[in-house]
């Protein structure tokens, strides 16, 4: 019985670590940034924080609802003084971590000075994590939300139209998911 529990715990830990992206490589960007927001909330912190959210306050009630499936939330937001302070290649080591069958891109939006990617992590076909990378001319944002099953839950809007629907669907070919502004 103990062996089964141990194996189960190891599997859970392995799944959690697979969803979590190593963000230490972004430290180089942090050095160049004029403003930064770095948030690391593990499972226990998310739970204790959620317990303090007031269900009667509109904003906090929405946050409580959003965080109900969260098992971890890691965020990096860097603002730069001028354009060209960072290169998109600087984020390649981060995106290289997504070269696993469990990670599927559900959206890639590239405009002249802006690129946004949203990836979903799936375990046994079930969505259980998200990574959002937003590269703007003077701002970089990386959000790793673990345990999330539907990205629509993370938005106060509640619905993200087709985007929210795609996140809960089984993975399809990346080419079909690409949403480029041509």
């Amino acid at each position: 019985m103990r062996k089964i529990m141990f194996v189960g715990l190891m599997l859970m830990a392995a799944t959690a670590s697979a969803q979590q992206i190593d963000m230490k490589i972004l430290d180089k960007l942090a050095e160049k940034a004029k403003g930064k927001t770095e948030i690391n909330l593990d499972s226990s912190m998310v739970k204790s924080a959620s317990d303090l959210l007031n269900q009667k306050k509109g904003d906090e009630a929405a946050a409580r609802k959003s965080a109900k499936d969260l098992t971890g939330l890691f965020l990096r937001n860097y603002e730069f003084e001028m354009e060209g302070a960072y290169k998109r290649e600087d984020l390649k080591p981060l995106l290289d971590q997504l070269n696993s069958p469990n990670w599927t891109p559900i959206l890639r939006n590239q405009e002249e000075k802006e690129q946004t990617e949203i990836w979903m992590h799936r375990t046994n076909g079930q969505a259980d994590g998200m990574l959002l990378v937003s590269m703007e001319s003077k701002e970089v944002t990386v959000i790793n939300a673990m345990g999330i099953t539907n990205i629509g839950d993370l938005s106060n809007v509640g619905q993200l139209g087709n985007l929210a629907g795609q996140a809960s669907k089984p993975p399809t070919k990346p080419e079909e998911k690409k949403a480029n502004d041509d």
């Binding site: 948030i39 912190m45 924080a49 946050a63 965020l75 959000i143 938005s155």
Partner: peptide
């Protein structure tokens, strides 16, 4: 921190 993170995430989405 959770509130800030969710606000930024919501804004990006």
């Amino acid at each position: 921190q959770l509130m800030v993170a969710l606000r930024i995430t919501g804004s990006k989405l």
